[in-house]
Design a protein around this nucleic acid. Structure first.
Lengths: 253, 253
DNA sequence: CGCTCGGTTGACCTAACTCAACTTGTGTGG
DNA sequence: CCACACAAGTTGAGTTAGGTCAACCGAGCG
């Protein structure tokens, strides 16, 4: 925990106060961590697993981001002590560190080192959102997918073949398209030397794919943690999550 | 300046240091304040006028936000000392306060009161972006316009008739649609009791319009400064801005 | 007087969503 | 061990929101 950039520079004293009330919890896949409009009592830090942030209005839902370890989320809402502006749900089993909001806000007002670390972290989140919006609005679906594949490739060591980190439907959500559309996009990419076999994707002609993708450092910035991307298409959601909702949240310190 | 929430709580000492190197400048309409990828040397604070933030990729441009007074912008980039992720251009004559980035970063590291004010400000910007994305992705053009009109109405005192603060094309950009589309949207709104006469818009049946708009506090939060919205449609931009580019920047202290 | 620019209107086009059918792989109960 | 059920993914056909292009109008201005 001390190794997180958010806490690394912090005073020993405030660190102790923050951790005193913090705890670690494991969540199963599909657990709803919070819902729009809820008061936000904790800052969440995703240590392992992945989580999806979404927004809803008028029975439609859209994915705002999919996070991987290590990421903080809803920092802004905690600082403002405002209701959550998004829903958070685990995608796979996730280890999450939870820090009470009151302690966090107190620490911000007392320790310069902490509050400037928070400012840096927030700035990073902000820039991530901006990148996500640009990715979403300036590129078409094919281009988004191409860039995503290139990003995954470099993150997984640069070899010609990569493994999709989630099920395809989550990738679709992440890229702002319907699963059907993702499927079609993949088959369109055959023309650019992309071969898909289940979750394995191999890029046979990187140069060609890159000419399509036109990656841009201002959009595809080397992601410090994991993809903080935008998107997903409007979709009616029938809230048939009963099974998941009821899933017991096995807690641990 | 002391009355800005960002500086109100700050130490007299750091306030002096910040203002020592700061200056105020007037810009004409259409002035490019900064361009994507530029190093960011100043924090900008818009005191009067309005400015448009946009992003580009592959010769397409999209409006990310339109700000009114009083708003800070590119705070995140200044804090990270990173290249700008968006373009900024004045829409009308604008008074802008500029604070050197180095001084600002120094102040953050030294004065808790300032760095926690920065954290609050950044959180607000972040939430604004999130709202903008939800507005953009979950609502259709008609709904966005309807909500925009209602928001303007309440900001202008609640009377049945309101005045559009910018030319319609900027409103279109702000709402993420082409000017043509905005025009059509306005005429569709006739069915909901909206009468348009140049920049004057009167809402004859608020209840009807509201049933269409379904305003939501999580999206249409009472904006502290001015609209921080998203959008604009992809558009080829032929960079025929010569006239504006060349416009002299009449500087003043 | 005629230019330009913002706005409007109409015809057309395209990306992306929806719905529905079909395939395949995986796990469960008989 | 097999049959069935279910979920993910794919494929195809139809729909739609929204953008593009082009023509047109009216106001301001040299």
């Amino acid at each position: 925990m001390r190794r997180l950039p958010l806490f690394a520079p912090v005073d020993e004293e405030t660190f102790r106060r923050l951790t005193a009330t913090a705890f670690l919890q494991k969540f199963p896949a599909g657990a709803d961590l919070l819902t729009e409009g809820d008061p936000v009592d904790f800052l969440y830090i995703l240590l392992d697993g992945s989580i999806e942030l979404s927004g809803t209005w008028n029975d439609k839902e859209t994915t705002l981001a999919v996070l991987g370890p290590v990421s903080t989320f809803i920092l802004a809402a905690v600082i403002l002590d405002a209701p959550a502006t998004m829903n958070a749900r685990t995608i796979g089993w996730s280890d999450i560190l939870m820090i009470p909001g009151a302690a966090l806000r107190a620490a911000i007002e007392e320790d310069v080192r902490f509050s400037s670390a928070v400012a840096l972290e927030l700035s990073g989140c902000y820039q991530g959102l901006v990148r996500a919006i640009k990715n979403q609005k300036l590129r078409g679906g094919l281009e988004r997918l191409a860039n995503y594949l290139l990003a995954q490739q470099s993150r997984q060591g640069g070899g010609p073949t990569l493994t999709l980190p989630y099920e395809k439907r989550f990738v679709a959500s992440l890229l702002g398209m319907s699963p059907e559309n993702l499927s079609r996009a993949f088959s369109s990419l055959q023309d650019y030397g992309v071969i898909v076999d289940g979750p394995q994707v191999t890029i046979t002609r990187p140069a060609v794919l890159e000419r399509l993708a036109k990656p841009d450092p201002l959009i595809d910035k080397h992601l410090p943690t994991d993809a903080i991307l935008i998107s997903k298409a409007d979709r009616e959601r029938n809230l048939q999550l009963g099974a998941h909702r009821a899933a017991p949240l096995s807690g641990t310190v």
